[in-house]
Design a protein around this nucleic acid. Structure first.
Lengths: 246, 246
DNA sequence: GCAAAAGTGTTGGAAATACACCCATGT
DNA sequence: ACATGGGTGTATTTCCAACACTTTTGC
């Protein structure tokens, strides 16, 4: 980081103190984290929303966010918000993008960093239901508060792209799942239909599924086999991708 | 954004003023932008670096950055830095990632947002050479100041992935280029060798190159044809990608 | 005429797609 | 017995990788 303000640089070197004073000057900005928390239930992709804190947006839904503390790592702030809202802490979480328009927040300048999290809805019951916290179908998410619609859209697109390249989807499923569950997940997220046989072939060919020799229970049809995802094997085999593909 | 600090939320709605006071409270953080500016020259991928401002890092190179102004959009800050350092303003620029470890900067808490820019070295002469601003081979970039090595690595990886999926590379080339130029660019960025015939076939099949019916000049061998990239056609044809590919 | 890189096609293998029938279970 | 979805195999097509010779220019 440099400290040029006008493009004319005269002193090649600054003392630590000179920079400290700039960093501590009035030139500081409120920084928040907003979490887009995806879940999967009843074969639909869901997202966690709350009612906006703010009167101006009282009737609108918003993402889960909070200011980042002075002495808190950015990632840590995201984990804190997740923990506070869902009670979970060992979850998938990834930074997606930062949003910093001057006028994005009515209370003043707030730059926000968006994080995506994928959690298993069944592994956790929402306990803190303040602000009407609950799951919404992603299809029905419109007109969020602030610029949260834009943030949500960016994260949803990110997810769609991401699950095609990385095995994130498993975070949304129970540890044991059937191939049908897996396909439903992909179809829901990508909003598409896939051929059942080819889907199956593809995943078996990847060789990251462990057959745990159990079957579905209480289904009104022939039960399917259950599998676990083999993270270790995936880590070892990750492909190096070289090819051009616009 | 909400304002819960302890996970127990009592008031479901806050006034704008209540939030304003939080945003304006001491809970603010210095925010900077760091630019990783890539160029391509002599068949090598280059990056712009300066000497660190800071005595502590006096012998080290660092990225080009500056604090974000109170009333400045995040993207605008990145464009400003580019303009100040390179004199260019109509360039490719994209946000990559934010870095927010508490201890990443010795002068205090500074969260930084990394941007990548791709510019054509020939279209611009560096005029402001303060802090020994100049181009470095990416291969030789090691041991940057602050956490800039980490930022640089993230941006370089981002670039490698990105040029395989999107036609960014053309920003690094002159408007008119030969297929050899294009292949050299890809080989330099991806640090690999490609088959000339297959490369050619691939790009012609994409059908985004315009044959401008000119030839290379002053080359000591048979001159190649020159092409331009057809951005319009690309925008129309962009593929929708559905497929699983870990 | 020689050096250096441009330009050009074919072939074999791998992967993706499309597609239809039998099987196991619950009701 | 029937309804529901599970499980499997094959033929076709498409895409990718490997590979060698002729052409044009400058020197």
């Amino acid at each position: 980081m440099t400290t040029v303000a006008n493009g004319k640089m005269t002193k090649p070197v600054k003392s630590l103190m000179a920079i400290q004073s700039e960093v501590q000057s009035s030139n500081r900005i409120a920084l928040s984290v907003d979490c887009v928390i995806f879940g999967f239930d009843e074969n639909k992709l869901k997202v966690l929303l709350i009612r906006s804190d703010l009167k101006k947006y009282q009737s609108k839904w918003s993402l889960l966010g909070d200011l980042v503390g002075q002495h808190e790592d950015l990632d840590a702030a995201a984990y804190r918000i997740l923990k506070q809202r869902t009670g979970l802490d060992d979850v998938y979480l990834e930074q997606v993008h930062s949003f910093g328009s001057v006028s994005r927040h009515p209370a003043g300048r707030v730059v926000t960093v968006a994080y995506c999290s994928l959690i298993n809805v069944r592994h956790h019951k929402l306990k803190i239901l303040d602000n009407e916290l609950h799951w919404h179908d992603v299809q029905s998410v419109t007109d969020l508060a602030f610029d949260h619609q834009q943030i949500f859209n960016a994260c949803y697109q990110w997810l769609q792209k991401r699950i095609q390249e990385h095995p994130l989807g498993f975070n949304l499923l129970p540890k044991k799942f059937s191939l049908r569950d897996l396909q439903n997940l992909y179809e829901a997220i990508l909003d598409t239909k896939m051929d059942r046989r080819n889907f199956r072939k593809k995943f078996f060919a990847m060789d990251f599924l462990i057959d745990i020799d159990e079957m579905e229970q209480d289904v009104p049809h022939r039960p399917g086999k259950l599998y676990k995802f083999n993270y270790d094997k995936y880590e070892k085999k990750k492909k190096k991708w070289v090819g051009i593909d616009f």
